[in-house]
């Protein structure tokens, strides 16, 4: 046996190398096809600078429209989160394969998959067509997104619980609902609060956007300001949105604190 022979610890994989080469080639090809070039970027920088220049100083041109838009966005987010959470609880439970028979998990999984297939903006467009312009469409659109997100994660959380605890509760002769309340929910409660507050946060962001397609909220105000070239107003709106998101983050953190504190058993 050779003692100096180069024994490779990690044998070369020609498939992996070929994969990288192909990926690099495709990136170059796709960039060329889409006219993704350095020159255009440089020209764009110029335009961007002019745009930013016109944004400052920010001016609140229409205070009413800004305030109403923000309040409406907030309400859309809160209502959509609340309704979405209420609906996703039973849907998620029905979709959990360790507790439910197949005839229940399939329909629930299909509902969740449908809710998750489209971006909220696309769903919002559909709802604007269905129920007309305004906040109602936005609420429905974000509710659908919430059911998809929380329902899926909730079902997964339930599928990971310890069935021993469930078995013990069943052994006491507890009814199905009591098994859920005592054997299942305590095991997933903290995670559920996590999903719900995350979704609230995400709904707040999305509620500023559905307005662009006419589904209510600050997005509509933003879009019309863009179209009027009121860039100083655009800047003011963007800053207000940032402020609102930050407030929302604090709010979500507070909700989490309250519920998780309550979920804990207080020591003496």
């Amino acid at each position: 046996m050779s003692t100096r022979g180069a024994r490779a610890a990690f044998p070369a994989s020609w498939w992996t190398r070929a994969g990288w080469v192909l990926l690099a080639a495709y990136v170059v090809y796709a960039g060329a096809r889409l006219d993704f070039t350095w020159e255009r970027f440089l020209v764009g920088l110029d335009n961007g600078a002019r745009f930013i220049d016109r944004m400052f100083p920010p001016v609140i041109v229409q205070p009413d429209s800004l305030a109403n838009g923000l309040v409406e966005s907030l309400q859309i987010a809160l209502l959509a989160s609340f309704l979405g959470i209420v609906i996703s609880l039973p849907v998620g439970l029905l979709a959990s394969r360790n507790l439910m028979p197949v005839w229940a998990t399939w329909p629930a999984r299909i509902v969740i998959a449908l809710c998750r297939s489209f971006h909220p903006v696309i769903v919002a467009i559909l709802f604007v067509k269905a129920v007309g312009f305004g906040a109602m469409a936005g609420i429905l659109a974000l509710m659908v997104a919430s059911v998809g997100f929380i329902g899926k994660l909730f079902a997964e959380a339930i599928e990971e619980i310890s069935l021993k605890q469930v078995e013990a509760v069943r052994a006491t002769g507890a009814s199905f609902m009591n098994v859920i309340t005592y054997g299942v929910l305590p095991q997933v409660f903290t995670r559920f609060i996590g999903f719900a507050t995350y979704q609230l946060d995400s709904n707040l962001r999305n509620s500023t956007m559905v307005g662009i397609v006419g589904a209510g909220g600050i997005g509509g105000t933003l879009f019309s300001a863009f179209q009027r070239f009121d860039y100083d107003f655009v800047a003011a709106i963007l800053l207000s949105i940032i402020a609102m998101i930050m407030v929302g983050e604090v709010l979500a953190g507070w909700v989490r604190g309250v519920f998780l504190e309550k979920g804990k058993v207080d020591g003496d």
Binding site: K164, A168, T172, N178
Partner: peptide
């Protein structure tokens, strides 16, 4: 033991009555 880990001792003991109380 199969206790419900996140519940208190009292809640676990009382869960012995779950066959008798409404949801």
């Amino acid at each position: 033991y199969n206790l419900v880990e996140r519940l208190s001792v009292m809640e676990n003991v009382l869960s012995g009555r779950l066959g008798y109380v409404s949801p």
